[in-house]
Each structure stands twice: as C-alpha cells, then as structure tokens.
Amino acid sequence: MINVTVKLFAQYRENRFKVEQRVYKKGIHASEIIEELGVAKALPIGVLMVNSRHESESYILQEGDIIALFPKVGGG
C-alpha cells in the first residue's frame, strides 16, 4: 500500500474535501482515483498535477505523491 495526499479544488470540493491523506494499492493510476472520487462526472478533469507538475490520468502513483485535481479553471 502507498500513502498519497489528494487535493481537490473549485467545484470538486463540494460535498467532498479540500485535502486528505489516503492509502491506495501499489500501482494505482491517477484515473482510478478520479473514478473512485467521482469528481469528473459533472465536470471533466481540467488539470491534473502530481507534485506540482502536470501529469496525465495514466500516471502511476508513488509513495508520498501529492495529487491535485482541478476542473477547467481560468482567469487573469
């Protein structure tokens, strides 16, 4: 098992959480975490970062990773 910090932002926080330490099976893909949390049902993933770097949903999580999930956001 591995420890992963999951951060959610914008609409993804509604009825969920801002940040949580979670335990996952080794070899888990980012897409499986997205599926488990159900965040992408209403609003697709806009940006996925692991340890402050953009990654794809096929990324395989490692011990201690910080994964951050955002719907499409913008401003300026």
Partner: peptide, 21 residues
Amino acid sequence: PISGEGLPAFGTNVLVNIINE
C-alpha cells in the same frame, strides 16, 4: 467550462490555488 462555470462561480481569484500548486 471556464467562461461559463469557473469564472462566474469563483471569479478570477480561482487562480490562487492552481498557480500556487
């Protein structure tokens, strides 16, 4: 999704978290 959802809900300040992250 940005001009239709994110900006009306959170304003331009939605950027603090993503730029920080």
